[in-house]
Design a protein around this nucleic acid. Sequence first.
RNA 1: GGGUGCUUAGCUCAGUUGGUAGAGCGUCGCCUUUACACGGCGAAUGUCGGGGGUUCGAACCCCUCAGCACCCACCA
Length: 938
Amino acid sequence: MEKAYEPHAIEQRWYQTWEQRGWFAPSGTGTPYCIMIPPPNVTGSLHMGHAFQDTLMDALIRYHRMRGDNTLWQAGTDHAGIATQMVVERQLAGAGQSRHDLGREAFIKKVWEWKGESGGTITRQLRRMGSSLDWTRERFTMDEGLSESVKEVFVRLHEEGLIYRGKRLVNWDPVLHTAVSDLEVIAQEEQGHLWHIRYPLVDGEGSLIVATTRPETMLGDAAVAVHPGDERYRHLIGQLVKLPLTGRRIPVIADEYVDPAFGTGCVKITPAHDFNDYQVWLRHRDSTALLAVPENGLINLFTIDAKIIASDNAPLASLIPPQYQNLDRFEARKRIVADLENANLLVKTDPHKMMVPHGDRSGAVIEPYLTDQWYVKVGPLAEPAIKAVEDGRIKFVPENWSKTYFEWMRNIEDWCISRQIWWGHRIPAWYDADGNIYVARSEAEVRSKHTLADSVVLTQDEDVLDTWFSSALWPFSTLGWPQQTPEIKALYPTNVLVTGFDIIFFWVARMIMMGLKFMGDVPFREVYIHGLVRDAHGQKMSKSKGNVLDPIDLIDGIDLETLVSKRTTGLMQPQMAKAIDKASRKEFPNGIPAHGTDALRFTFAALASTGRDIKFDLGRIEGYRNFCNKLWNAARYVLMNTEDQDCGVNGGELEVSIADRWIASRLQRTIDHVNTAIGHYRFDLAAQAIYEFTWNEYCDWYLELSKPVLQSADSSAAALRGTRHTLVSVLECLLRLTHPIMPFITEEIWQRIAPLAGVSGETIMHQPYPLADESRNDAAIETEMDWLMRFILGVRNIRGEMNISPGKPLPVLLQNGSAEDSARLERYALFLKTLARLESITWLDGAAAPESATALVGEMKLLIPMAGLIDKDAELARLTREIEKLGKDLDKCQTKLANSSYVERAPAEVVAQDRMRVTELRSAIERLDEQATRIRAL
RNA sequence: GGGUGCUUAGCUCAGUUGGUAGAGCGUCGCCUUUACACGGCGAAUGUCGGGGGUUCGAACCCCUCAGCACCCACCA
């Protein structure tokens, strides 16, 4: 083996082997265990969030596979409608073209081409992560089978009246020219204005003052509303006001919606451009007041670009003064405010903070816009979905996310599922010349179902479905639904969904609704919600901030110049490049060194504490790369001492030492911890247990303790066999324990270690996962070992504090030992001498002690003679520190015991423990005091 | 406006049913001891955000205040 661990040398090779041998596929036997990957965008690339999430899923999958479960990790990608279409449109724009220049068919062809080109990136990167996805079952949301599922679901929901088409206000993205759902709208606080505008009364001299943040929409006002109980305006209800700039007459109406305390208490009602106003309008549209208004008051002012309509594109434009026609909405706002001011109708302008809706993809200000769209009636689907979580058929981990889920589900609105884009599942609806709508799986089915003659011309709806519509079906569409496949029978419901909180609404909730509806059962039993991966300073990683880390760069390493150029090219705001350049150079002066996949995975696992966000610090991954190296070198040591030697697997007497028994006992406890931790999705605790056992127990103590046995000429063949046997068998087990988190290094080492441990098999992947064997917990041996360790630590402490070279053998004198101490000394002399580097061990009995530094092992006093070399002050300082520390503990204990109610009420064993402690502390302090006195007297 | 979290060592975080506050990184010493300098050995470091309560006992349970995040929401 190489002296240093080099991940590159092994990772690629092992992944290829695993995949080629078909080892990721379900075994076909055992308890089913299935996870669906949250399908990444097919044309995307792997970011830290994916890498984190996939590490956790792969750890679970490998864990269950090793436990003998019939394990499937379903692979696949998402077509990501808007996102993907935008990428391709941007490419076209680079060539000076728009999708409309190409036409629908050619454009879609282009997108498929792009998918073909870049579609392999993310799946390649998933492989780099070691993800044991079953690639033979890989699906794509727009492949044939999944498209079948989409159609089937649409048609069935439509038949039940749970999908309908309707004209109403939607969130309109004027840049993308499509409707988006409520979830795709991000409200951002912005500094705006509240304009107070005078609306003169038609009769008489008076006027009303209306406060608005959007003066440009006044061109489409249908009414002015006041609160019915508002004394100031009660007498004006039913009167008409003259709409400024147009002269159009609109009524004053009364509606509870108006808050008399806000603004002026008068609200302009623009039903075609404001969600609230639309609701008000619905209540009043049949009133004579509104019937008198053009279009019944529902006046659509905007084109799909959110420009004011003009006479050449809309009949309603006659209502709009020509000077505003064709203006962009924000242009129109400026113009209208100026004109109002000139006309003396602008009473005042107040600064006003408000939430402005933006499209999550385009960033454009979203416009409430009146269009025909398809909707899912969500209420009837939500009800059982709420219940499934309430009664525990689905459990959120951490549990409190269920509150977020309930909160949203209980206030859920109908879901707008149609999008006016081209890349996606075309809506299976057809129209005849009269505008009749037919929904079916195909045009042929429409014709046969409705007995339409071939002469009837049908055109399919132009729209496509929201991407999340097909994602919602993922847990069963990937298994072959609507066909009744064996996979569905075996693997649905899946076991756990691993995902981020940001898509609980987008995806998790909708999968639950659809799963219950079409499969009659929940899609997964648990939802593990992990946190967001942030940068080292807690900032969200984003291209625009220039703080993105690419998981592949952490694995392979990247030089500074490449990193900087990666971060500064293709920025939306190129002026940021300089700052990003500077910050990156400061943070990574030498670029990023290679760490390997296993170190990255271990880091993610170690950071994955209960659902909170994680700050990704390079220091952590470095530490875990070192851990890989540690494990690697431990294996080298083991191999050096066991290869071609008798490890006792073919029989022969085994003599085990205290160290052998101790490490076996510790291993059992570690196995127990790791299993418990994984069972609770506490990957951090699992990683920690593995780390501590490997480094602090196996390497620091056990390997060191094995050396005296292996190197001593006096060791019997049985003792050598025993130690070799423990060396290999503990390591072999540790590798299996660690494999789900670090698959590569464990496989590589295991291949060499397993035969020595008498274990055969093609791969560690299919070896049984270690289960704790309580009977091997050996409390007695741990107590013995504790004594041994304290002895050694005592000597080392003195050595360190007295600045004595680690290599210098020391004599040690002992006082005040018990019969047990001397028996132990007898038993463990070899270990003590080697690990503490002792020249000799001598009982002092009655004799006077020379000048020495001291340590205590229980009651026994350990003296290291300093023969004139003693640094009196240093030793005194050390003793004083120790005495003070013990003194503090003693005080605490004594105070507690002096409290009669404590002694009476606390459990007897707790009190007894404290009493014992007091005795121990007193005696220890006494001994240290003696020693301090002696030193002082020197 | 409603909701959910968080606050523990310089930094990043653990802390199981309340019972002696822990780890990693960093820092400071000593050391090239033949598994590993991506290392070994040793050391230092805390008013557990503030205040109050329950309890024999609180980092943990309750109340309250402060600060920081995030999510949802139609106040024009």
